[in-house]
Structure formats: C-alpha cells, structure tokens
Amino acid sequence: MLRYVIRRLLLIIPTMFFVALITFSLAHLAPGSPFDRNENRPLPQEQLDKINRYYGIDQPIPVQFVDYIGNLLRGDLGLSFTRGRPVVDLIGQGIGTTAQLGVQALIVALAFSIPLGIVSALKQNTPLDYLSLLIATIGTTIPSFVTAIFLIYVLGASLHLLPFVGWGTWQHMVMPTFVLALAPGAFLTRITRASMLEAIRQDYVRTARAKGLREQSVIVGHALKNALIPVATIIGPATAGLITGSFIIESLFNVPGIGRLYVISINQRDYPMIMSTTLLYAFVIMIANITVDIVYGALDPRIKVS
C-alpha cells in the first residue's frame, strides 16, 4: 500500500512536467506578444524590447522554458503581463474565494444528491424515482451558465429576491453555490442510485433481513455502508467539474476568484497567469484523483491496489 502511494505521488512529477510543457508550447505558438494589442498606436520598438527583456520573453523559447521550470521549483510563478504584479499574489488573493465556493458547492451537492439517490433506489420505478432521474438528467445535460441565466432572470431580475453580482454576504453566495453544485449533484444522484440498487440485491442484505433485523438497520447499516463506496470515487471527477464550472460561474456572477481571473487572463493573453493557473488546476485534480484511489482501496478491501 505504502509503495503504491509513493509511486502514485512520484508519477505527479512527470505528468506535471508534460502539462507544463504542453501549456508552455501552446502559449508560445501563439503569434504576437501581449503588448501589441493596440494596432493603431504601436509601442516604439526600443520600448517593446525593454518590456520583453523585463518579462524575460526576449530569450530563445527553450531557455525560457528552463527558466520557467527553475523559477517554478522555487515557487516563483513570474509576473502577470497585464497587471504587472507577481502571479503568486494574484492567485493568492482569489484562491480563498474559489476554494470556499467549491467546498460550499460540494457540500450542497452531497447533501442533496445522496438522500435523493437513496430514496430513488428504494422506491425504484415509482413517480418519485422518475422525478429524481429527470432532475438528474436535466442537471447533467443543461450547461451551468444556462441554468444560471434562468435563475438570475427569475430570482434576481424579476423577483428581486437575491443579488446576482458580486460576492460578500450570504445572499450573494446562494445562487453561485447552487448553480455550481447542480452538475456534480446530478451526477452523484445517478451514481448513488445505481450503487444502492446494486447493494440492496446483494446476499449480505438478504442475510441481514433473514436474521430479522429491522428494515432501518438493514438499509443504513448494511446496504448504505457498501453503496457509498463507489460514491467516494466520483469526488475526483467532481473536483474537475467544480474547477471548470468555477470559470463560468465566477465570470457570470462576478465572483472575485481565480476562475474569473483565469477567463480574463485568457482574453488578455496573459500567459504567465494562464500557465500558472492551469498547472495549479492540474495539480489539484491529480491530488484529488490519487486521494480517491487510496481512499477507495482503504474503504473496500475487495479492491486490490496495483
């Protein structure tokens, strides 16, 4: 087990290296520099050279890459092209908000989807089951920005119940959190239902019934305990979904997190910001996936890690 964990953790290094290489190559394949945006009033060449030297983009590309990796290892992510401030500071400013939004959304998703999935499985093929499946289908199919628009229209613009721009009070957090929770929540509902359906047909559940246990303890103590193991595995994909969801939700609701910053950086071609944020996201997702695999192995002794 320990060897498996160490091997998985070591595998992060080459994967991160390639993620960095791909993002770096793509960013430098793009034509033009971020400083020639205004075509009517081009910067004088000597000033451009000075700026390029300041940001280190006058060097040959392989040298830049080696420098970048070196700086990365020392925790220096470079300067933002458009804001002129260290990328670390900018990410540090937004990461708290994004993490808070993500954790809130995850909690909401779990709180709604697990009970819904369980009830749906126990009442299979009843109207209640069909309703929850329909909600789950809509939640996984309709893009979050579309759901957000309908919510903003009804709750924000028409009924004036909730504010939909900015961040700070709990009222500001309600809509972004719920919209972000919708996609992972819908997916979790399907998984919970499927794995609960499988669990209640197992022999050990029949045995528990046969020895005369109360229905409640059969469901909670025997079926549910095993049904929730596969649910743990989707925390990995859910993290990825929350991250990509945060780009859209933060942009839409004007939440000052790194998702919104990322979208702005993309539109401004701010490559140090784009690269660093991408690497951060890839790292978080890899850690989430590894944690899931380890926890899964620990929860279910039938799974042999290899």
């Binding site: 993620v19 793509l26 990825a240 979904g241 990509t244 780009f247 071609r269 890839a282």
Partner: peptide, 14 residues
C-alpha cells in the same frame, strides 16, 4: 490530468 474543458480552452485561447 487536464479536465476536458480546461484543455480545450487552453488550445483555443492560445
């Protein structure tokens, strides 16, 4: 290691 959408965004943006 990349979420799909993130990868697509990077390719298209650059």
């Amino acid at each position: 290691a990349f979420p799909d959408l993130l990868f697509v965004i990077i390719i298209v943006a650059t």
